[in-house]
Structure formats: C-alpha cells, structure tokens
C-alpha cells in the first residue's frame, strides 16, 4: 500500500484515503465543442502511461477531499513530490528543472 503525502493536510496518509485521478496537467480545451475528433480523442482518451517518472493527480477523498498533483516513479511506485493543484508542473526533486513538457495545461 502506498503512503501518500497530502500537500493540503501536510500529512503522510495511507493510500486507502486517496483516489487516483489519472495523468496531471491535461487541460480541458476551452473550445471543446469546436475541436476535431482527433483533438477530442487526444484530450479524452490518450495518455502517456509513462514507465518511469510520471506526473499524476490524486484526490484525498477520505480526508480533506481536495485534488492535488504528485510526481511518482511508476517502476518503484515511490512518490517524489506532492504539490497543490494550480501550481505548474514541478521539476523532479534533485534534478535540473524538467524540460518543458510537450503540452502544458492549465489547472487540471
């Protein structure tokens, strides 16, 4: 079971309190009714499914109830950082600032 840090509660809590909420920093297109089918498929269905360092959303559903983002290594399942929703994609702790991601979303 994972031990997860909620950046709002400021505590490490058991995974049972949390709900995984998919890849982070995917912004819903502002013009959702105007975008093409390809763009919609990309936004709605396609995911990086990264093997390695991944940016993802979690929700502290049985705690404060809030969404936040986290960086986790999906091979070791180790969390590297949790940060509040609304912050831009954070660099991996201890590394050079991450290269600009291909698509930078807003608050996801």
């Amino acid at each position: 079971m994972l031990l997860i840090h909620c950046p709002y509660c400021g505590e490490d809590r058991s995974e049972l309190e949390f709900r995984w909420a998919g890849e982070a920093h995917i912004a819903r297109p502002d013009t959702i009714s105007a975008i093409s089918d390809d763009e919609f498929a990309e936004y709605f269905f396609m995911r990086d499914n990264t093997k390695g360092i991944a940016w993802e959303r979690w929700r502290h559903i049985h705690g404060c109830g809030r969404f936040f983002n986290a960086i986790r290594d999906t091979v070791s399942d180790k969390f590297l950082l949790s940060y509040k929703a609304g912050l831009p994609r954070q660099p991996v702790p201890g590394s050079e600032p991450a290269a600009a991601p291909a698509v930078e979303g807003g608050v996801a």
């Binding site: 079971m1 999906t74 399942d77």
Partner: peptide
C-alpha cells in the same frame, strides 16, 4: 490497483 504502475506487484489491501 487504482494507480498506473509497472512494478509487477500490488497492494496488500
């Protein structure tokens, strides 16, 4: 498990 992972292991719960 609820999260995506390549660890080939899962939570005891």
């Amino acid at each position: 498990d609820q999260y995506h992972s390549y660890s080939q292991t899962g939570g005891l719960q």
